[in-house]
């Protein structure tokens, strides 16, 4: 699989990563090399094979609808990069 620079730009934008111009070409080459290697999977006959997302066949793992105390707000906010007593802060994100 050839990886065009546009694809690297596209997945970078999707991932909220922005590679410096100097690193882009190297990253493109590495991704291409890795994906080319992964193409060995093309040779594997998977017709009719159900994709397996969970290896352990657990089912219906659920909890009761019973309220437990929430965590102390101060503890949740303690690690926020911008300190505030009540909320997490971001640059303007709503109209």
């Amino acid at each position: 699989m050839k990886i065009a620079q546009e694809i690297v730009d596209y997945v970078s934008a999707l991932s909220r990563l922005s590679l410096p111009e100097g690193e882009k070409a190297a990253m493109q080459r590495e991704l291409e090399k890795i994906l080319q290697y992964m193409d060995v999977l093309e040779g594997l006959d998977t017709a009719g094979v159900e994709p397996m997302s969970h290896v352990i066949p657990l089912e219906n793992i659920m909890r009761e609808d019973r309220v437990m105390p929430s965590q102390d707000r101060g503890e949740l906010l303690a690690g926020a990069p911008v300190p505030d007593q009540e909320a997490f802060l971001t640059p303007k994100s709503v109209e």
Binding site: R63, S70, Q71, L77
Partner: peptide
């Protein structure tokens, strides 16, 4: 297991899962 109650002071119906 945090409550779904409407309202409440900001971020008081929260736990590590919610945040």
């Amino acid at each position: 297991s945090c409550t779904t109650q409407f309202g409440g002071e900001p971020n008081t119906h929260c736990c590590p899962v919610c945040t």
